[in-house]
Structure formats: structure tokens, C-alpha cells
Amino acid sequence: MKVQILAAMVVVATVVAMTEASRVPPYLGRDCKHWCKDNNQALYCCGPPGITYPPFIRKHPGKCPSVRSTCTGVRSSRPKFCPHDDACEFRSKCCYDACVKHHVCKTVEFY
């Protein structure tokens, strides 16, 4: 009986530990190369080590589209993650996307 209780306690402790670990971002940023701000102005690592991006030289003209308040789940293509504009094509900007919770290349707006 004591063994079963101990085993149940170990299972519960493991589940709790895994749940808490899932709340931690996948990369905490000790060696982060690029930091970005999300839609709440909180910093997060948008350029983890192991991923090579071109150097930042200049901002692309135009502005980012407004951050969506809802996500449709429909995309025409896979998003391209980025830490800054120079990681995107010239007619795109590196903008925060609330649906993927990361900066991605988006078509610029000029108005």
C-alpha cells in the first residue's frame, strides 16, 4: 500500500514539474543574439543561437500591419521567423505576429 501511494506521489510530482516546465519559453536567452518586443512590449529572444541571420543594416520602408486580435488558423504559406527587417525580403518587414507569438516577415503597409 505504501509503495502505491509513493508511486502515485511520484507521478503527480512529475506531472506538475512537466506542466511548470512547459510554461518556460523554449529558450531563456543566455546566448541570445537578438531580442524583440512582443505586442505587450515584453522582451523575448527572437534570435536564438544556432540560427544564422543576415546582419542588421537598415529598417525597411513602410510599417508593420496591425497586430491581429484573433487568429484564423488559415495561412497561405509557412511564416518566416526573423529578428529584424534585414532577415526579410525588401518589401517585407519583421513584425510581431500574435498567432505564432514570434516576429515574422510580413508585407509592408505604406499608409
Score class of each variant (00 low, 15 high):
residue 47 G to Y: 02
residue 77 S to T: 13
residue 83 P to Q: 00
residue 80 K to Y: 00
residue 72 T to F: 06
residue 100 V to I: 12
residue 71 C to R: 07
residue 3 V to W: 04
residue 16 V to M: 11
residue 12 V to L: 14
residue 24 V to A: 08
residue 95 C to K: 09
residue 85 D to T: 03
residue 10 V to D: 07
residue 88 C to E: 05
residue 29 G to H: 04
residue 24 V to F: 06
residue 97 D to K: 11
residue 6 L to H: 08
residue 30 R to K: 12
residue 4 Q to C: 08
residue 58 R to M: 13
residue 54 P to C: 04
residue 94 C to I: 01
residue 40 N to I: 03
residue 43 L to E: 10
residue 4 Q to G: 05
residue 87 A to H: 04
residue 60 H to R: 04
residue 41 Q to T: 14
residue 100 V to N: 07
residue 90 F to R: 14
residue 48 P to I: 00
residue 7 A to T: 05
residue 89 E to W: 08
residue 99 C to Y: 14
residue 63 K to P: 00
residue 90 F to P: 14
residue 78 R to F: 07
residue 58 R to L: 11
residue 7 A to P: 06
residue 67 V to F: 04
residue 102 H to M: 13
residue 6 L to E: 07
residue 84 H to Y: 02
residue 75 R to L: 08
residue 45 C to E: 01
residue 4 Q to R: 13
residue 74 V to A: 12
residue 83 P to G: 00
residue 47 G to F: 00
residue 75 R to M: 07
residue 13 A to N: 10
residue 56 F to S: 03
residue 55 P to S: 01
residue 25 P to R: 00
residue 42 A to Y: 14
residue 79 P to F: 03
residue 23 R to W: 12
residue 97 D to F: 11
residue 90 F to C: 09
residue 19 T to S: 15
residue 73 G to D: 08
residue 8 A to M: 10
residue 23 R to S: 13
residue 82 C to F: 04
residue 8 A to V: 05
residue 88 C to G: 05
residue 44 Y to R: 02
residue 87 A to C: 05
residue 97 D to C: 10
residue 60 H to V: 09
residue 32 C to I: 00
residue 73 G to V: 05
residue 77 S to W: 02
residue 59 K to Y: 13
residue 67 V to Q: 08
residue 106 K to Q: 15
residue 7 A to C: 07
residue 69 S to N: 09
residue 55 P to L: 02
residue 85 D to R: 01
residue 106 K to A: 10
residue 37 K to H: 14
residue 41 Q to M: 14
residue 68 R to T: 00
residue 61 P to R: 13
residue 108 V to M: 09
residue 21 A to L: 13
residue 104 V to I: 15
residue 9 M to G: 14
residue 53 Y to A: 02
residue 47 G to Q: 02
residue 27 Y to W: 03
residue 65 P to W: 06
residue 5 I to K: 15
residue 31 D to F: 10
residue 105 C to H: 08
residue 57 I to L: 14
residue 50 G to K: 12
residue 17 A to D: 08
residue 4 Q to I: 09
residue 41 Q to S: 15
residue 40 N to H: 13
residue 32 C to G: 05
residue 78 R to G: 01
residue 3 V to Y: 06
residue 4 Q to Y: 11
residue 57 I to Q: 12
residue 89 E to L: 12
residue 107 T to V: 12
residue 42 A to I: 11
residue 5 I to R: 15
residue 68 R to P: 05
residue 14 T to W: 06
residue 2 K to G: 14
residue 70 T to F: 01
residue 39 N to T: 11
residue 35 W to S: 06
residue 54 P to D: 03
residue 64 C to D: 02
residue 54 P to Q: 01
residue 35 W to A: 03
residue 51 I to T: 15
